[in-house]
Design a protein around this nucleic acid. Sequence first.
DNA 1: AATGAATGAGCCTTCATTCAT
DNA 2: GATGAATGAAGGCTCATTCAT
Lengths: 210, 210, 210, 210
Amino acid sequence: MPTKKKPQATPTPERRRELLAVAAEVFAARGYNATTVRRIADEAGMLAGSLYYHFDSKEAMVDEILAAFVDELGQGYDTVLRAGLGPRETVEALVAESFREIDRHRPAVAIYQKEAQHLASQPRFAYLLEAQAKFERAWLGALERGVAEKAFRDDLDTALAYRFVRDTVWAAASWYRPGGPHSPEQITRQYLSMVLDGIAVRAAPPHERL
Amino acid sequence: MPTKKKPQATPTPERRRELLAVAAEVFAARGYNATTVRRIADEAGMLAGSLYYHFDSKEAMVDEILAAFVDELGQGYDTVLRAGLGPRETVEALVAESFREIDRHRPAVAIYQKEAQHLASQPRFAYLLEAQAKFERAWLGALERGVAEKAFRDDLDTALAYRFVRDTVWAAASWYRPGGPHSPEQITRQYLSMVLDGIAVRAAPPHERL
Amino acid sequence: MPTKKKPQATPTPERRRELLAVAAEVFAARGYNATTVRRIADEAGMLAGSLYYHFDSKEAMVDEILAAFVDELGQGYDTVLRAGLGPRETVEALVAESFREIDRHRPAVAIYQKEAQHLASQPRFAYLLEAQAKFERAWLGALERGVAEKAFRDDLDTALAYRFVRDTVWAAASWYRPGGPHSPEQITRQYLSMVLDGIAVRAAPPHERL
Amino acid sequence: MPTKKKPQATPTPERRRELLAVAAEVFAARGYNATTVRRIADEAGMLAGSLYYHFDSKEAMVDEILAAFVDELGQGYDTVLRAGLGPRETVEALVAESFREIDRHRPAVAIYQKEAQHLASQPRFAYLLEAQAKFERAWLGALERGVAEKAFRDDLDTALAYRFVRDTVWAAASWYRPGGPHSPEQITRQYLSMVLDGIAVRAAPPHERL
DNA sequence: AATGAATGAGCCTTCATTCAT
DNA sequence: GATGAATGAAGGCTCATTCAT
């Protein structure tokens, strides 16, 4: 066990991460606007002004939180899309990836869901719009391909279906508690069995699938 | 001091309703906290202070908006539940009622969805908690009865299903535009065909139903 | 004596002017940066926040103060230049006009002299640069014409002379007190007799002039 | 505890002088109040806190800068006054000494001119008042003696003349650039030819003098 | 000598609210 | 019913300063 780290003196990037975690939790719980910088500082055991040694502004904090989430999710989706799966499997993978993200970065997801819309109007958060478009393409593409390839019902309104799926998935960030009664995998399975078996063209009774 | 009966174009309760409509629209668009009393007044063509002739406080405004919505929805659900329908038909009717409510009182619904949680912690808004509990009983009851009566799959996690349904339905208030491409009935039909045919025990291919 | 004015209720533009006068006095005495909004409010008998009913920001206050001064001085100089005077008389008139301005708007002039330079770097105060350039043209033009027309010595470094004159004139705003021992006219006379009789080509002993 | 005599590239008093030079430059450019300790540190290539190893406070820095200037100038003036010159030559020598000081310690002079007034109200800077009084005595003495001895015009308002001279001379610190188009000697000559030939009693045309 | 991190006071500004008219 | 003006409590942020390492 090499003792390279001086005890007590937490290195800079480490501290930032800790503080961001605290901030994310508070933002998620009370909303961005309703969260005071003082509250974050309290929770972190310091004074409000001290936060400004680490971050430029309150805005910079959400920015960093959201950017990290959006990046990671974008990469997750990319990996799914590059896997060359069929439409049904793609949807399954996207759902699984999403719930996994919620499991690991719940506060960030909750913030994203609540605040993205009105933050996106500021130039600084323009990347949120790009991300939203990208996510939409991922889902919509899978749904439309599914219809074309007869994996999904041909009377499916894909635009509407996309919205329903998106809303349900992200809303889960509001009630999901890591270590609670449902694991991400369980949620994924239940969710897919609900949604997919309503979407999928099928011949046999649905509970023989999956 | 002259006649009291000056013929006024807008008698008091009328004006209140107008102002509340304006306020609801602004609250829905920008969020309760982010909405300034001045903004509402601007939109209504008056000065901020003048609003206090009509309402006790900003809080009183959301209160009135939310209470009206919650009352109306509660009555709608009651009507559905008293109709003595089967579980599947009950779910259908609850969904239809919900989307109808969104169609008629979109801003109120949007406010409810975004703000209910954190407002509910204040005593003044305790009725929101009761309402939430009531709505949950309505949905959960229908779902559980459906499982018991074999209308819905027996491996259904009703608690999870309830959350998914609730979230999707209310989230629609964020993107639904009255007079837009989808009528409430269309949305209801599509939504039910998605969700129900995934929930319902069925023997025949799903597109022969509904 | 017509009683159109309701007693007590000072009309809006009046109040602005009063408050600006107070602000100008404080800015001049302590410097723009060192002046707190609270101090201005104190001096005006109100709370800091109340100032924002009348003005957008502290910056907006100096802006209004400086813009008014710069406009008025610009017009004064224009009037002088349009009068078609000889170079010596032009210089005399510019000096007289400047000291008159100091007499009437001493705080504004003092602020201009102390703060113009660093405020001018902000886009909002770009007009200060234009004004400076305009004033320079007025003085430099008169000096150069004076040299060309042999009213001023031909070994005069006009660029240097301009700076000396400008600095002395405006610096007077720092020590001049209206109602003090020197009237603006006295100051003008003394100043001109000092500066001009050093600049002017002359044959007879200088104390026979002016 | 090892040897005290580590050969250091920059011994303490040297480093202080360097840092003070940096500080003076920044104070002169942006004003004392507007200058942050961090800015000085940046310019010096260190962190804000590190400055406190060398100096007690930001105030201590200006103090040291101003005290040095005031001392040096005081000595310069003393030397001039002890030389036993006539009033005109004394004025010439004071001007020359002043511009020389500006050439060598421009930032300090600029700070003195801009900040002395409001700093002087603090006990710590009381010596600035003494210095001002001393400088005034030097100039005023020379001017009055000149009037008495008929070297200067008898209608001269010496109090006013003193202010004009003082203001112009120090204001030069704002625009003078060492190594620029004008040498201190040139400026001195031009300035004296402007001012003196307006002040001096003379019989012959002024451009035959000096 | 210098760094990293934090403090605490104070600043500009916003905003819900009040109230005399 | 509405206006104009003001209040007072925060809120985000800056900055000189401190101190252990």
